[in-house]
Amino acid sequence: MIASRLRSAQPYLLSAPALLVIGLLFLIPSVYNVVLAFQHLTPYQSPGEAEAAGLENFTDLWSSGDLPHAALNTVLWLTAATVVLRLGIGLGLALALESPILRRWRLRGVSRTIILIPWMVPQVVAIAAWRWILDGSTGVLNQALTGLGVIDQGVPFLAQTSTVWWSIIAIIVWRELPFVVMVLVAGLQSIPAEQYEAAAVDGAGRWASWRSVTVPHLRPVLTVVVLVTVIQTFNNFVYVWLTTGGGLGNATAVLATELYSAAFFDNDLGAGAAIGLLMTAIMAIFAVVYLRVTSTKGESR
């Protein structure tokens, strides 16, 4: 009797440590963030000193007036632009890395290593280096362009509204591109060679075999890559914060920088938690809709 009970409880007992870790590391902080969003608490107080705030932290979000602008920047510039560019360039590079020429010349290993370099550089170092490269008076890029006679005087890339977002996008794409390239390379390698051979036998040209063999096989990989990069970028704070801090004016403010300002400059952890909750909700909605759309497409095929 006892033995059979133990046997039936075995799956739960075995998964209990993992569930405990998940609960401790993920669930408790998330629940606390929700609680904090309904409280007033400064970073100098202990959690026990928090005061109930009701819905005030959420209603204040709309009265500040800066949030819609930051949300638009987050969705359009920070996320959409960089993800689209990374996917486009990443796919091109992945195809190039898998090309027969590189294989023939035995350059695939070297090429992959070179592509991985930006990813090996810590984000903070990459941003500091790029700030130096883009500097309006002493920057390497300006000196090169001036030396080549392309421009008469240095362009302060980070100090004018027409170039500041493109500069941030360049930094993000440069640093985060290798992840996309490597995952797509793995996806390309998983496509059986026989399928290309069969397509060739059926008379398919390069474009036809790309459309009928490569794209369908890459679709699940692309689904994951898009989901991961969107969530990762949408929540990213470091790139904008260390490059412009949300300036010029508030031209590059994003939700993550607004969260930080609310929590640590205005000393209102509750307001910061409310913005965090809003960001989580946006990403949760995106993930559900995106996965439903992509899975529906897959099923219909």
Binding site: A159, Q160, T161, G246, G247, L248, G249, N250, A251, S261, F264, F265, D266, N267
Partner: peptide, 23 residues
């Protein structure tokens, strides 16, 4: 009621908006 850090942030942001031609 407003922290000095918040004052700094608001002031620097609005002055910067003027320099960059946004306001």
């Amino acid at each position: 009621p407003i922290t000095i850090a918040s004052l700094q942030e608001q002031v620097n942001q609005q002055f910067s908006a003027v320099y960059s031609g946004q306001s």
